[in-house]
Design a protein around this nucleic acid. Structure first.
Lengths: 193, 193
DNA sequence: GTTGATCTAAACGGACCGTTTCGTTATGTC
DNA sequence: GACATAACGAAACGGTCCGTTTAGATCAAC
């Protein structure tokens, strides 16, 4: 089950990139295999062949580790379309997002982060003030452009964005991310009135 | 800290209402005090002066206990308005709902249930197929009546309802339920176009 | 009376938590 | 070249909670 890398000794008074990579990889793998339920720092350490203190040194909370492995992949994996219509942009982007959540470990990471935020103040703060603003920057562009095209008033940008976000959260948290969710186009259309 | 009821012996071959009440009360109390983070079956049993096996007998999972203590209070606490306008109905209902989530233990219970659903298949199923349909019956009436008044086509009822639900989830999960959330009327209005 | 389901208490093995201690290893500085 | 510094993994700490099992006591129904 575990490739059990040979021991990585310290490389001196600096952080070991190998260890960092091994921990992130083990965390991803573990999440992919067992989901958030079977996720523990203990097990991550075992698989990574790392010491728990090492993990706690660099990722003081589970939320930090989650955020780290969610990574910048999302922006890379999901292009922000610009078709000239918010409706079409949103449909494309949302389908890509759902695919990303389905196929990558990302969906599980994200669900875990939200769950964690319900039990930990620190995780909630990280979610609200770090993770969300960063991750919403991309999709926000679509709404911004639509407002510039006068599809709706500029002061509605963030309200519409949040409605779209809530809609996505609802689906990911209830594990309804199927490819051909029939209501998707309708709901998207509603957000573009 | 614990009133420590005197031991409740078995009352024979039927479920003890006293025990049931004591467990629910202890669970509410514990959630109110410590939130979902500090919630454990162990502690509930301690406070209720009940045996853990008794709790596991009647509430096989945490989710079951959550659902039981969320109870029918919501329908009692939150009237479904009928002003003749979806916009006004939704605004009133949403404000009441947020107040309910803020003031009662309910908000914490709900957040706990959603978090639990991310780690447990059973909890997710309970949330999707039992809790949500039951709890959404009331607010759905507002959308239904609006469609009957031809405020929008009848086939949009559930899509609009879900957008509203997602919006509420987003706020409760990020702990943004303040009385005077300025964006609330705007977002509600958007849902009524 | 007997049967049977319920109750609490107590203890079980197991999993994690987050921390501390320890000996090792390499870096950067003097 | 010597040395403080900092990161590394292993092991163990005390603690909490899980879900289950065993046991003895209670009471209702038959």
């Amino acid at each position: 089950m575990e490739p059990k890398t040979k021991r990585r000794a310290s490389i001196g008074a600096r952080r070991s990139p190998e260890t960092e990579a091994a921990v992130k990889a083990a965390a991803r793998e573990l999440l992919a295999e067992k989901g958030y339920a079977g996720f523990s720092i203990e097990e991550v350490a075992r698989r990574a062949g790392a010491g728990k203190p090492t993990i706690y040194r660099w990722w003081p909370s589970k939320a930090d580790l989650f955020i780290a492995i969610y990574g910048a992949d999302k922006d890379a994996a999901i292009p922000v379309p610009d078709t000239g219509s918010l409706r079409d942009d949103l449909l494309l982007y949302t389908k890509d997002l759902w695919r990303f959540w389905r196929e990558d470990t990302a969906g599980r990471v994200f669900r875990g982060l939200i769950a964690e935020a319900q039990t930990s103040e620190g995780a909630l703060a990280a979610l609200r003030f770090k993770f969300m603003p960063e991750r919403l920057a991309s999709p926000r562009k679509m709404f911004l452009r639509a407002a510039e095209r006068s599809e709706f008033p500029a002061d509605e940008i963030d309200d519409r964005l949040e409605l779209w976000v809530g809609f996505n959260w609802l689906h990911v948290l209830t594990d309804r991310l199927s490819e051909d969710e029939p209501s998707l186009p309708h709901k998207i259309a509603l957000l573009c009135r």
